[in-house]
């Protein structure tokens, strides 16, 4: 296959970026999208040009490091697939493909397709945990957890923190990410004592980071590689309203 990639090139956070077209030839349909970028970078290096910077690590769809917007869709055209698991057999010979970074104020561009997603860590830091210092735990069977709750918690906990939800959201909101953690911990008995402060503090951190508000359009869940459902946001809203009924539950 021969393709034209129009890739966003930006030297640094404050530099001006633009789309630059590159022709790539001899692309195998079995290549992953990132392997095409690898191949392009090998060529650019030998031509004396700067290779394209992009984040990636595990290349098996679980670390959440990779992610680019391909033809306007976060992680590209395949459902429930990260960019590293997207293979070229889903494209056609001669295609022109636009490749852009996640775009959000809370995710400033570091270089080219690499963005800083530290804001997601700050949302977790605000309360996305159970306070269980090492050594304090009772026996694991001391507290049975209904299977339905455990399964629902697991579904939400599969979030890989890639940020595709933010990239796709017309409002630049990270509510699906925030809601996934609120739901994961809120569905388990271990998460109950901090349930109210967690949701208040995480939403506050979310808003402080400069993410937009959710309008339930569902663009996030359409691109989520783990298929985190939109219902988790309903759960977050419910927890938030409950926690807000009685004021001053926040830790901060």
């Amino acid at each position: 296959m021969n393709l034209t990639l129009r890739i966003w090139r930006q030297n640094g956070p404050d530099a001006k970026g633009r789309l630059v077209a590159y022709r790539v030839t001899d692309v195998s349909p079995d290549m992953s999208f990132l392997e095409v970028l690898d191949m392009l970078n090998e060529r650019l290096t030998m031509e004396g040009a700067e290779p394209v910077a992009f984040d990636h690590d595990c290349r098996e769809g679980i670390c959440g490091a990779c992610g680019v917007v391909i033809n306007g869709v976060a992680h590209g055209p395949e459902k429930a697939t990260t960019t590293c698991q997207l293979h070229m057999r889903h494209f056609r010979d001669g295609d022109t493909i636009d490749v852009e970074p996640w775009r959000a104020r809370a995710f400033p561009v570091v270089k080219d397709l690499v963005v800083d997603r530290g804001a997601l860590d700050r949302v977790i830091e605000a309360g996305g945990y159970v306070s269980a210092p090492t050594g304090s735990a009772p026996d694991a069977h001391a507290l049975p957890v209904p299977k339905a709750d455990a399964d629902a918690a697991f579904e939400a906990a599969t979030c890989i923190g890639c940020g595709a939800c933010v990239a796709a959201c017309p409002n630049g909101s990270a509510m699906l990410f925030t809601a996934a953690k609120v739901t994961h911990l809120g569905r388990l008995p271990q998460g109950q004592p901090e349930r109210q402060s967690r949701v208040l503090d995480m939403v506050a951190a979310h808003d402080d980071a400069g993410f937009g508000g959710c309008t339930n359009t569902g663009e996030c869940t359409a691109v989520c590689p783990k298929g985190i459902p939109l219902e988790t946001i309903g759960q977050l809203n419910r927890d938030y309203l409950q926690a807000s009924r009685r004021p001053a539950r926040s830790r901060s």
Binding site: V69, D98, G213
Partner: peptide
């Protein structure tokens, strides 16, 4: 807020 959250729009 949404507008501020995405200062640079997608080209595609």
């Amino acid at each position: 807020r949404a507008r501020a959250a995405r200062p640079v729009g997608y080209a595609h």
